[in-house]
Design a protein around this nucleic acid. Sequence first.
RNA 1: GCCGAUGUGGCUCAGGGGUAGAGCAAUUCACUCGUAAUGAAUAGGUCGUGGGUUCGAUUCCCACCAUCGGCUCCA
Length: 596
Amino acid sequence: MSQTDEKSEKMDFSNETYKNTYRHTSSHILAQAVKRIFPEVKLGIGPSIENGFYYDFDREKAFTPEELKQIEEEMEKIIREHFTIIRTEMPRQLAIDYFASKEEPYKVELINDLPEDAVISLYQQGEFTDLCAGPHLENTSQVRAFKLLSAAAAYWRGSEKNKMLQRIYGTSFPDKNQLKDYINAIEEAKKRDHNKLGRELEFFTTCDLIGQGLPILLPKGTKVIQTLQRFVEDEEERRGYQLTKTPLMAKSDLYKISGHWDHYRDGMFVIGDETKDSEVFALRPMTCPFQFQAYLTKTRSYRELPIRYNETSTLFRNESSGEMHGLIRVRQFTISEGHIACRPDQVEQEFKGCLDLANFMLETLGLIEDVSYRFSKWDKNDKAKYIGSEEEWESVQNLMRDILNNMGVDFVEADGEAAFYGPKLDIQIKNVHGKEDTMITIQIDFQLATRFGMEYVDSDGQKKHPYIIHRTSVGCYERTLALLIEKYAGVLPLWLAPVQAKILPVAQSHLDYAYELMKKLQAKNIRVQIDDSDEKLGKKIRQTQMEKVAYMLVVGDKEIESDSVAVRSRKEGELGALPVSDFIEKIVKEIETKAI
RNA sequence: GCCGAUGUGGCUCAGGGGUAGAGCAAUUCACUCGUAAUGAAUAGGUCGUGGGUUCGAUUCCCACCAUCGGCUCCA
């Protein structure tokens, strides 16, 4: 490799290491600027992150937008001052003394927590020196384009037990155009935000009187969910699932057996007072213990397994007040939940079936390219959060990992993300703000069958506990609706669209024909609306476009004469006049094939 | 739960210690209309809720509720 090649690779922003270095240096420039303007502020940490960087500061007040402007100007100055960035290594005690003398308690804490043999390095640029593993750019002037995006609070070292620091988020790019493109992309993404678009398009609303995290699904949103739910239930039936319908609440006794009472109490809505009432109920946060009761109605034979139950199940979780977000994070939601009881020799096959179903759903919805797979394991340093022994956890986690590897799933492993009763395969998806949530989950459970005494008589006449697979097939309907709105910017795939076609008569004199056309479409189960108002065509079109209706059908004299309709598609644009029968054929086919 | 911002008619937003205004939407009338805004008129708000200060609060103060952006937590 020639020297210039080496150099150009080093400077390549698509190279993750270089990008992170670039942004990490940007965060140091931010910290230097903050220290210049607000010397009393204590430094936290300042890493690069997926789309930029942040730096945490201990300061009484939050940073105001005006202060961010001021800090940005100071950063410009620091860049223009062309500071060489110098790395030095220091013995532990010297480094502690250094930061103690500069009254940087967080830095001292960080050094104290470093392993004994860690190399402690400092990076200096001008008058500013920071504890940092590096690497960094060579000179502050190499940062060409940056912007501070927001200020928000964050707990020191991510723990709510710690003090809250003030975080400044920013991003940086090799040139102003890339920065501008990024800012534009953020703005564009915001326009797709389901929380805004979903309300504008009348998919859902919220009401102060009903409360936080309890959205009201309006007719359009409900229609989408109903369509999706029917599809999911039919597909599950085809795949050997039996539908159950179990109560939305139960006595505390049930949750005491399942472990929810001890491990999930904060997440439940409890009805009644344990200290006063003889019976205390709780709304269900999960369906598992309810559906298990269906299994328990009689003695099960190994020949009956696997038993696959599914339920379109409404759940209630008492999320903390600051956590609700549109339809993505709510307190009551409905989920395509199910449980499979199976023998050990069936686990792999059944798990595969669950993943096939999930992938089929994602494929159908056009979301398969947008998800990632996360193998969520327990945290062995926090055993109190889980039930079961270390041996059991290790064994079932190894089983799951083997299955995933055998299936060739491309997954990442995550500690501390498991359910309290077992590991999970979580299918993750990002919303329009880049925030990741779980869409679908498939879990292997080796605890609850034992707790509830679920058994089957095996071929050797012995009673054994089945494995339980907990799974969803599209996950939560509210969340899925939100993701679909964002994915398609409100223009959902036709089969899901609440209004599939809207008829716009050019004038009142064409109303009879318009209604006739509507009947023809309705006869084919096409969801159709008519704008029979006395407005001018231009106005009708403008309104229909704002509603993001898939097909707009204009009828006037020309169409009536030829029994046709002028079609405008949201996706394909102007299609001109089509014979009515041709249009029906086209739209029916599009609905049937679930075209995206 | 924590930090911060926000809350004025259906929507977007002005205003500001003396009981509120615009545009769009709605309704009515005229126009009977061919692809992003025809004209005129009408109606609609105890300014998120509850306290407090004040002669007087939508405006100032406090609490609560809700919405948004983060953190933490989670499907």
